[in-house]
């Protein structure tokens, strides 16, 4: 029925679907990783040595490597928790009515947001004491604890910006309505503003968490026994066989992929969902 119109805009035209990156499935990545592991192994076994095959060696080490990976996850969860708590406080500082508080929070945020994560990690490792005393009690501060502090600093700064951005993105009418109902500033924040911000903050916050998880391997450089450190130790225990490098590091990559990719997919889904609602 549209054929007769002389206005091209009236012609029905299929609406193009918006571009969405095609989702990788596990069966996409498995062959890639498998090929990375198997090809060098085949090359070496073709050399006819009487060593255990690389995959058999890997199998022996998997329990230890998994233990190391769980430690990475523990570090990531703790650093995220500490960083989120500190970052929320800092973000609220950035919108404080007190200008000194505001500029101070802004400076701290910018400073840690524009610092390399590895430098912050070294900073925490070598500047924090290895033990501290509270009321005559001496508590040791282990390396992994310092790593959590070091990694939580950039998380804090990024969360601060996420909180500030979410609060600023709410229409000012929400503040005005709460103020005219005689809410205090604290009530306005906790009852009206922040509950609405949680939804907006969730996708970038999850993104940050995935980035943090991948950054936990930096702790290997400062000697924390996480998955990269353990992989290195396992490889040298096996006498530094070059054919083991690809399967071992391939396995570590696979672990991180299996953990971070679902987070990324879920983040994307949340973003789309909230975009529709808003």
């Amino acid at each position: 029925m549209n054929k007769k119109t002389d206005m091209p805009v009236m012609l029905s035209k299929p609406i193009e679907a918006p571009y969405t990156p095609s989702a990788l499935s596990y069966w996409h990545i498995l062959p890639i990783i498998a090929a990375m592991m198997i090809i060098p192994s085949l090359a070496f076994s073709a050399a006819g040595d009487e060593q255990l095959s690389p995959l058999a060696v890997l199998k022996n080490w998997i329990p230890l490597l998994l233990e190391g990976f769980v430690f990475n996850l523990v570090i990531s969860v703790c650093a995220m928790a500490v960083g989120t708590a500190a970052g929320t406080a800092l973000g609220l500082g950035q919108i404080s009515p007190n200008s000194l508080m505001r500029s101070g929070s802004w400076f701290v945020t910018q400073f840690f947001r524009n610092a390399p994560w590895l430098v912050l990690l070294f900073f925490a490792m070598f500047l924090l004491p290895f033990e501290f005393s509270i009321a005559g009690l001496t508590i040791p501060m282990p390396d992994w604890f310092k790593a959590i502090i070091g990694l939580s600093l950039p998380v804090m700064a990024n969360v601060s910006e996420i909180v500030r951005g979410a609060i600023r993105s709410l229409p000012s009418g929400q503040w005005e309505a709460a103020e005219s109902l005689a809410y205090t500033r604290r009530q306005t924040l906790w009852l009206v503003i922040l509950p609405q911000c949680v939804k907006r903050m969730l996708p970038p916050w999850m993104n940050l968490y995935a980035i943090l998880t991948m950054a936990t391997v930096l702790a290997s450089i400062v000697g924390v026994s996480e998955v990269m450190t353990l992989t290195g130790r396992a490889l040298s225990a096996e006498g530094g066989r070059p054919d083991l490098l690809a399967p071992f590091y391939g396995f570590v990559l696979l672990l991180f992929f299996a953990y971070c990719y679902p987070i990324a997919r879920y983040t994307l889904r949340l973003e789309k969902k909230f975009a529709v609602i808003n």
Binding site: P171, G173, Q174, E176, A177, A178, E179, S180, L181, A182, T184, V192, Q196
Partner: peptide, 18 residues
């Protein structure tokens, strides 16, 4: 301001419901 605003109600153009 809180005492004042308890006495004065306000309705906005954009409703501003929560």
């Amino acid at each position: 301001k809180l005492e004042l605003r308890k006495k004065v109600g306000m309705v906005f153009q954009q409703y501003n419901l929560f």
